[in-house]
């Protein structure tokens, strides 16, 4: 019989190991810890890649690349500089954006531009997405941003545009866009209640 559930801690006296602990063990070559890390973050990494690069096969490639980098570079993770979840998602986003910038054909690029007016372009993906409590919180909190903040953050994060491209798309001055990105993230942080 296959395991019916997401992994349950195998230690008898503790809650599930933290992502930091799993990363720590991964750095020492513990393949089961790495597998647990995949189980904990596979959906997030793949979903983020899928959202940014859009193509399912490319999203798989990006996700695999990200997890291999986690495997290879786990020893470089520094808990003093942030939590493991942020580290993993930051890496995933960076690789997904790299993929969009380097490999995406101009044609695809244009189609992404074409979709920018439909702010709800997330829904096609989201319909199929698993119930995700984080998504609810993020959606609610994105709603607390001003329109310009939200559009700046969305275009950069989810579509992989540079701030200069965002400025062009939004017909806003470069410093304004930078400021909106920063202010948008600050509002998000405060609304979500996250810390480093």
């Amino acid at each position: 019989m296959t395991t019916p559930l997401a992994p349950v801690p195998d230690r008898d006296d503790e809650p599930p190991p933290s992502a930091e602990a799993l990363l720590d063990r991964t750095a020492r070559g513990d393949e089961s810890a790495f597998a647990a890390l995949y189980d904990a973050f596979g959906s997030r990494v793949y979903g983020l890649a899928r959202r940014v690069v859009r193509d399912p096969q490319q999203a798989q490639d990006v996700a695999q690349e990200v997890f291999l980098e986690i495997w290879r570079r786990a020893s470089r993770f520094d808990a003093a500089k942030g939590n493991a979840g942020s580290w993993i998602l930051t890496l995933a986003h960076s690789r997904a954006v790299d993929r969009v910038r380097s490999a995406q054909a101009a044609r695809d690029r244009e189609s992404v531009v074409a979709q920018r007016s439909t702010v709800r372009d997330t829904d096609t993906v989201v319909e199929a997405v698993e119930a995700n409590l984080e998504r609810r919180a993020v959606r609610r909190c994105l709603g607390t941003l001003t329109d310009l903040q939200r559009e700046s953050v969305n275009l950069a994060y989810y579509s992989g545009y540079t701030y200069a491209e965002v400025a062009t798309l939004l017909k806003a001055p470069l410093p304004t866009v930078k400021t909106r990105m920063r202010d948008g993230l600050i509002r998000l942080r405060d609304c979500l209640g996250v810390t480093g």
Partner: peptide, 13 residues
Amino acid sequence: RAAAAMLGAAEAL
């Protein structure tokens, strides 16, 4: 960074 990471986590699929 944690806030940005949540934007990504929210897309879990």
